[in-house]
């Protein structure tokens, strides 16, 4: 049995986010993959240093597209992005490790974007890998020899090895079981607390968003736009499974949002 009163995540709160400088500001005017179909309506977002912001919304609402634009992977049809850092990393839904490289070489792969010698890259990758609980034996394995949870942890190690000021998460936890998932939550939040890393996360899991974020943005589809912004009232250290349920209830109490997730009468399971 889980102890209901135990903190879900033992993490120090990130403090008053209001006074922190902005790290990323995204303002999308319009985005289309197809000229006749608008994927994103005007939607804007500002991310402060050390802040964790989640975008939630039903599947296909455009939240992943917004994240891709924010991360600079694609360019908005019309819009502006300004970021104070170029140390960014993205964690994708799939691990995207290179199957022909050992875990250690996969973790050091992302460091090639920085001006480091091969020796420095390996040293750094090794340090990050050990910090994340990998053993010497794991490091020489190919991704196909690792379990699903270890692969995603390897992908997180690759992302954190570049010491990002800005971390983008594109539903990276959705394929993991609850225990593996919490391990990764802790690793990400540790980075947020220790290094003031900012996180922009996309998820369709409302509970996950409420557990991790300072702010939750709800995106509605056709075309994608932010329908609601919700500041999570509790500090992260005070959040437990029980009061997260209450937070979820208060968020879904808004009829528009409950409808968005097809969750009218959400308290009924089936």
């Amino acid at each position: 049995m889980l102890n209901d009163t135990a903190p879900l995540l033992s993490v120090v709160p990130s403090g008053a986010a209001d006074t922190k400088p902005s790290v990323l500001s995204v303002s999308v005017e319009d985005h289309r993959y197809h000229p006749l179909q608008q994927t994103l309506a005007p939607s804007a977002l500002e991310l402060k240093k050390g802040e964790v912001v989640s975008i939630i919304g039903p599947s296909g609402c455009g939240k992943s597209t917004f994240l891709r634009i924010a991360a600079g992977l694609i360019e908005a049809s019309s819009g502006k992005i300004s970021s104070t850092t170029d140390r960014t990393a993205i964690l994708f839904q799939e691990h995207r490790l290179l199957p022909w490289k050992s875990l250690l070489n996969n973790i050091s792969f992302g460091l090639q974007g920085q001006k480091l010698s091969k020796f420095q890259r390996m040293k750094k990758a090794r340090a990050v890998a050990y910090a994340m609980g990998f053993t010497e034996d794991d490091l020489i394995k190919y991704p196909s020899e690792l379990s699903g949870g270890m692969r995603q942890r390897g992908a997180l190690a690759r992302a954190l090895a570049v010491e990002p000021d800005l971390l983008f998460l594109d539903e990276p936890f959705s394929a993991l079981d609850i225990g593996r998932r919490r391990d990764l939550y802790r690793l990400v939040l540790h980075e947020v607390d220790e290094k003031q890393c900012s996180v922009l996360m996309v998820t369709h899991d409302v509970t996950e968003a409420l557990a991790l974020s300072d702010r939750v943005l709800v995106m509605a589809p056709d075309p994608g736009h932010f329908a609601k912004e919700y500041e999570v009232p509790l500090a992260r250290s005070e959040r437990t499974r029980r009061n997260l349920l209450e937070l979820e209830a208060s968020l879904l109490a808004d009829d528009r949002i409950a409808q968005l997730f097809n969750m009218s009468n959400w308290e009924q399971l089936v």
Binding site: A71, L73, D86, T88, A89, I90, F92, E94, R96, L98, W100, K101, F109, G110, L111, Q112, G113, R158, V162
Partner: peptide, 24 residues
């Protein structure tokens, strides 16, 4: 294309991207 996107996200230079991501 996902692996290309991953390499792009880390700003890995094109030559390394070719040999390590695309060539295999």
């Amino acid at each position: 294309k996902e692996l290309d996107e991953m390499a792009q996200s880390f700003h890995v230079p094109p030559v390394q991207r070719f040999w390590q991501v695309q060539a295999p």
